[in-house]
């Protein structure tokens, strides 16, 4: 029985080739093999959203994918978010609005929020709430998070 496979994945612009156990989840590969511990392991069954990251321009739950399925894919984790443009604006807005306390949900939350904004999401609190409904936060009560995303949707990128 062949239980390992060699994969090549581009993570945050850098190409990695590793041999992984086929049962290893993508999140565990990123954290254990690549040392990228910014993405968090929460529930490990797709409910909490803490492991949400960007794969080929779309958000995915990295606990619901095998590392071998990321072969040939391009992944962006919290470590690879650009320090300019909408991503930077969002980070600043989260800090300004106190949209995090313990920070456990934040990498996944930012990933979902970025997808919302990059897909033309409007400054509409109901829509924002619906879009981040797959991301649990146990600290903030969501109000500050919704306001942080709302502000970026409304004001865009400051010059």
């Amino acid at each position: 029985m062949v239980n390992t496979k060699t994969i090549t994945v581009t993570v945050n612009g850098e190409e990695y080739t590793n041999t992984v156990n086929v049962r290893k989840n993508l999140i565990d590969y990123l954290r254990e093999d690549l040392g990228l511990t910014g993405s968090h392991v929460g529930c490990e069954h797709g409910v909490c959203g803490a492991c949400t990251l960007d794969m080929n321009g779309q958000t995915v739950r990295s606990c619901l994918m095998l590392a071998v399925q990321a072969d040939g894919m391009e992944i962006t984790t919290i470590e690879g978010l650009p320090s300019d443009g909408i991503a930077e604006e969002l980070k600043k807005s989260f800090a300004k609005k106190n949209a995090l306390q313990c920070g456990y949900c934040t990498p996944g939350m930012l990933s979902s929020a970025l997808e919302y904004l990059n897909n033309g999401g409007k400054a509409n609190k109901e829509d924002i709430r619906r879009h981040i409904s797959g991301n649990y936060c146990r600290c903030t009560g969501y109000q500050a998070i919704v306001e942080a995303i709302y502000d970026v949707a409304e004001n865009g990128v400051s010059k």
């Binding site: 994918m65 409904s133 797959g134």
Partner: peptide
Amino acid sequence: IPYIAHSAIRNR
């Protein structure tokens, strides 16, 4: 479709 889970789930 929007009633089915969340965006990250519907992407897969």
